[in-house]
Design a protein around this nucleic acid. Structure first.
Lengths: 128, 128
DNA sequence: CTGCATCCTATACGATACTG
DNA sequence: CAGTATCGTATAGGATGCAG
């Protein structure tokens, strides 16, 4: 029996939460271009802290989306790379990123129109 | 000149954050099946609080992804529906949802393997 | 039925300092 | 270079009560 496609199960939601956090999409997107060292990703994702990059990569590794290769050199070198599973996710993620690039101006103008139509709502959270 | 496709700008990140929050994907997915009243969506998205549904719908409306129609009846009726722009987002969102449905078991087994290989990390956050 | 306001908690995230 | 540990803050989100 197939799972209900129209219903987002806990487990599906769990996966989507992963993707929805602040940095996962950016990191996956960067690794999509090829294997990267820790600090290469760090530089390619402006604003990410060392802590969050470490955590994001650990979670991706744990979920089987990224492989971590340690090279016992001096200085130590660690490379991260998408797994085949990770690459299947990248395809879908790219779809979202493309949408955002194509339509974020539409979204912004819609916001402008909404805010003009609802001037009293400046106190509401999304306005700030 | 085209925007750098490999770089996630602030504005793109902004759009992705929207989609990445706890409920937006579920709500958009539900509205993808057709116009829905407030409490219809509420019932279709288990676990969502009234507050968060209201907020999620307001943000979607503000961003031009959803239209809100009020019918002056007794009792009052309000219907939400995806806009054409919202429907273009739905396509990409569906891609992600499909991925989650297809692969969440892969992810879970990968997690199990990781946790078995890293028994000492039970104290780390993702384990809980 | 639909929605706003208030209070409260959990947690995601950032800054900083320290280690093999 | 590639992390870990600790701390402080901001924010998302839940519970509850009231209103058109």
């Amino acid at each position: 029996m197939l799972k209900a496609r129209d219903e987002l199960t806990c487990q599906v939601r769990d996966v989507l939460n992963r993707v929805g956090d602040k940095w996962t999409l950016s990191v996956v997107n960067e690794l999509g271009a090829g294997p990267r060292r820790f600090n290469e990703v760090r530089r390619a994702v402006p604003g990410i802290s060392q802590r969050m990059l470490t955590r994001t990569l650990r979670v991706l590794e744990r979920d089987g989306l990224v492989v971590r290769s340690i090279y016992a050199e001096v200085p130590p070198r660690v490379e991260y790379e998408l797994t085949p599973l990770g690459r299947t996710l990248l395809e879908r993620v790219s779809g979202l990123i493309d949408w955002a690039v194509e339509h974020h101006e539409d979204v912004e103008s819609a916001r402008g129109r909404y805010d003009a139509r609802h001037p009293g709502d400046a106190s509401r959270d999304f306005a700030e």
